[in-house]
Design a protein around this nucleic acid. Structure first.
Lengths: 143, 143
DNA sequence: TCTATTTAAGACAGTTTTGTCCGAATTATA
DNA sequence: TATAATTCGGACAAAACTGTCTTAAATAGA
């Protein structure tokens, strides 16, 4: 469904949202360790998220990453589209270039329903709620 | 969402369902051409579908492929799982190995809703209905 | 100013996916 | 039986994705 890069990115953002509620900076090392993600590869993903203005980064000692906006104003959809693009929201299920409402592929209408529900889910899930679930111990990032 | 192999496989199966209503055999060449898919790669996919008993193949002149069961008894889900496996139905959205109902990742419950809807859609869409839509000119395989 | 710590950037390597090619096996037909 | 058409199987190649390494740049603190 999502690329590995996207999985690491989502996990990192959720972790940062949980641990940096007051804007503290978290280091790559800590983020990668606590989300069970490969450090060097995660670094690339975090760079990407910084360039897309989802994260703010600072070099040097006490440097690290923090969310660029409050967690309740960031949703999962913006992370996914920053890393995987929006083909998951827009693309044809059969990979047809010109599939559309008026000239649909055989899956189009039924596929659109599922895709829209995925989109809604990602748009309506904020980092604040996922952080809250982690705090309450009803969900887990490292299993 | 689906791999390229799976996209080609679905398109091929839908095309065969439409064109081989009485068990006629269709050649790889024709299938690949009419679904806009690379011929050699599609050949691999059709081999896979034949081994999984979704297609019946015959070599030689007048040889080709035909559905192994009537189109109204074949759904999209069986094609997807034959090619991409069922990680799309079962796997964790964040790639966590041990994500489960009792120890869920932060996306688990919401993700499951979407995934189940996708599964239902694929299970309840038969090749007969897709072929019918093509016949009626309300959907298209080559765009 | 010097040092240690951290992210940034680019090159590189490994793996998987996608795609091609060719010879072998099978089969209908002349 | 010979030929042509077709799928099968394996090897191979190209591209995309995943992952690592190394050096540079920035920054806090001694």
């Amino acid at each position: 469904m999502f690329s590995k890069a996207c999985e690491y990115g989502i996990k990192a953002m959720i972790y940062i949202a949980q641990k940096s509620k007051n804007g503290e900076r978290l280091s790559l090392k800590q983020i990668a360790r606590e989300t069970n993600s490969p450090e060097a590869f995660t670094a690339k993903v975090l760079q990407q998220l910084s360039k897309q203005n989802l994260l703010e980064s600072l070099k040097g000692p006490t440097g690290g990453f923090t969310l660029q906006r409050p967690a309740d104003q960031m949703n999962l959809a913006s992370i996914v589209s920053a890393i995987d693009g929006d083909s998951i929201y827009m693309g044809c299920g059969l990979g047809l270039r010109e599939c559309s409402e008026i000239k649909p592929c055989p899956l189009h209408h039924k596929f659109k329903v599922v895709r829209d529900e995925l989109k809604d889910m990602l748009e309506n899930t904020s980092l604040a709620t996922t952080a809250d679930d982690l705090d309450r111990g009803i969900s887990f990032l490292r299993i």
